[in-house]
Design a protein around this nucleic acid. Structure first.
Lengths: 209, 209
DNA sequence: TCGTTGCTTTACCAATTGGTAAAAATTTTA
DNA sequence: TAAAATTTTTACCAATTGGTAAAGCAACGA
């Protein structure tokens, strides 16, 4: 009875794979896939390059592992969108949650953005298999809310795009925001503005009947 | 009387520099600065690598030239925001213009996005010297509109961020949009949605008195 | 204590990269 | 047309890169 999943990882394996992935997040998000080097990752992890390659088959495997693990965390707030909650509050809560993630985990957001920017060559299958079904499900939820008159009639897909775009902007374009904004911390202003933006869009025109 | 700007460029110079910059736009926007190679650019331009280096001092100079030229084009619609026009229509026109640019020139948008994503290490001075003053000026215009009651009270800076984020999303995250959207062409839906999004935000609560 | 297994290091390599030197070819100018 | 200037090619290089081979070292069960 040969086991395909080769044993369970040792303590050292767990620790070092973690070290490598943490360092890789820094390097990949700063330099992009093409600009990142195994040496930089190894140095960041405090390991030698061949030692890094003992834990991962190559640069690409590190990158893909990182991204696919990331995708889960990243989609979690969308999963939590509750069909039984109050539509406007559910969506505004999602906006808040997404914005907080962008402000607190900019490296993760940037890593993902960089991959999409280049056409998602290495994670398009994850997009299709994980993201797309979830996206469709949530579009349907939003459409139901609209049909029941508890949400202004909007295009669900484009609404989600807008939420993603506006929230991630503070992470992905953080360098630009920092230059343009005199206040050092954009978070308060961003929260207030996005609340206003999406509330004015989403509140249904007439009371619930 | 020695001239610092060394003569005017010959016809060949003009043509080949154009060829190189066009090819570089493709390569840099696809592979990022780190992933791009001079060989790829040279091949794209139909020139040999040393020949490319006859026209530009190095990879970095090509990249910076491209970005600084691009910045001008990219900021042009913002320049055109007219203080004497109707506030809501001016801003919605800006949204439309910006969205059209993203849909029609995705490579340019991606190149710029990639640079900002990495912290704008090579164009931060352009951001400070060109973008920031323009940005401040236009924030002031918007604030005046608000103060005169012709625009809903919004944070001008964050409003501009939202416009940039939502419009550029269709270029920068085009790969993701393509996977998620069943319709092949997002442009119609995007235009309608952004019109709705920003109109509902910007229309002032009360008539002009 | 010995051997097996898992982890790490040293030394290395082939390919690619940005860039150069200088000759050759071409175009322009006188 | 001949000289001068410009453009292009050929041949090359040092540095970096992703990756490998294999020996050394550590841990652990029998």
């Amino acid at each position: 009875m040969t086991n395909t999943t080769p044993k369970k990882p040792s303590r050292i394996q767990t620790r070092n794979r973690r070290l490598i992935l943490d360092a890789a997040l820094d390097v990949f998000s700063r330099d992009g896939y093409g600009g990142a080097t195994l040496d930089a990752i190894a140095k960041g992890a405090g390991l030698s390059k061949p030692n890094v390659l003992y834990y991962f088959e190559g640069k690409t495997e590190i990158y893909v592992t990182l991204l696919s693990q990331l995708l889960e965390t990243w989609l979690d707030p969308l999963v939590e969108l509750d069909p039984d909650g109050d539509p406007v509050e559910e969506l505004l809560g999602y906006v808040r949650h997404k914005l907080d993630m962008s402000l607190e985990l900019p490296a993760e957001s940037k890593l993902f953005a960089g991959e999409i920017l280049k056409g998602a060559p290495r994670i398009s299958k994850y997009l299709r298999h994980d993201l797309k079904p979830l996206f469709d499900r949530k579009c349907h939820v939003i459409q139901d809310w609209i049909d029941s008159g508890r949400l202004a009639p909007v295009d669900p897909a484009h609404l989600i795009f807008s939420i993603w775009a506006t929230t991630q902007h503070y992470a992905d374009f953080g360098a630009q925001v920092a230059v343009l904004l005199d206040a050092d911390d954009p978070s308060a202003g961003a929260h207030a503005h996005l609340e206003q933006l999406f509330r004015s869009l989403l509140v249904p025109p007439l009371p619930k009947d």
